[in-house]
Amino acid sequence: MKFLKLAAAAATGIALLSSTALADDKPVVGLVMKSLANEFFQNMMEGAKEHEKSRGDYVLKAVGMQNETDFESQINAVDTFITQGVDAIVIAPADSRAMVRPLKKAMEAGIVVVNFDVSLDEEAKKQQGVELAFVGPDNRGGAKLAGDALGMKLGEGGKVVIIEGNPGADNATQRRLGFEDSVAEYKLDLLDSRTAHWETEEANTVFSNMLTANPDVQGVMAANDSMAIGVVKALESAGRDDILVVGFDNIPAVGPMIEDGRMLATVDQFGTDMAANAIDLALEVVAGGPALEGWVKTPIELVTGE
């Protein structure tokens, strides 16, 4: 796979270089995205492009990755942006540790860096001596919103399982912790917790098997909506309409499920606006505003059928 990544990186580099010259004094923002194969980031990218058009006072250069864990191409993209001398880099890091060093290099080159979507690792930042604010949603708090909705319905002792995202991915960890917070607060009984790698078919299979092992389960917390869909289908084929499901992301496909009660709730973190908001913040700093500090929280909202 190595040569594919190299090819992808080379292609990205060429694409970036060829579009350099057109900047007429407008600040240039380099946007480094995660996998555009994920509709969440695809929508975010579209949101950013529209934002560029409607604001009209900056130039956007956006780079996406091949997959969720492809931080190598992110590092290459950051390097290319440094070479080009962009004014700001706005990045959704694919790895919360590996991206700290290249971003430090960018900051030393005088580029305004805004970290959004997933926070860089605090330890790694300390080690490298980097001070960098984070603009993004509280994944843990969001998951807790969904988990609480479930906990409130089930009450103390309610038997639940968690369907996790990719092991090792920061947002997967945060969401699991958020669900576990709900479990603790509502004194729920957590029967099992397994990954389905964010994927519908795998969630369908894994949850069917969890249901067989734990037929008395009452509630399911899925770390994203794609997996929640797989859970809902598993419940339908098992003929169980007594089990509550919550998800995360509010993708269009779960709309009908929330409406007719097959899903209890999901969480919207307004992904379409997220990159655009981070760009706004970056441009303020570029224009001479004060540096961002700490955690600039972006809105999250519980979505239910009621």
């Binding site: 994920n38 994927e199 519908t200 078919e201 369908n204 794609s226 797989g230 289908k233 496909a253």
Partner: peptide, 15 residues
């Protein structure tokens, strides 16, 4: 079969 079973068609299916 994937579509019939899960009632969606996902471009990231089958990785």
């Amino acid at each position: 079969v994937y579509m019939a079973r899960l009632n969606i068609a996902s471009p990231i299916a089958g990785i």
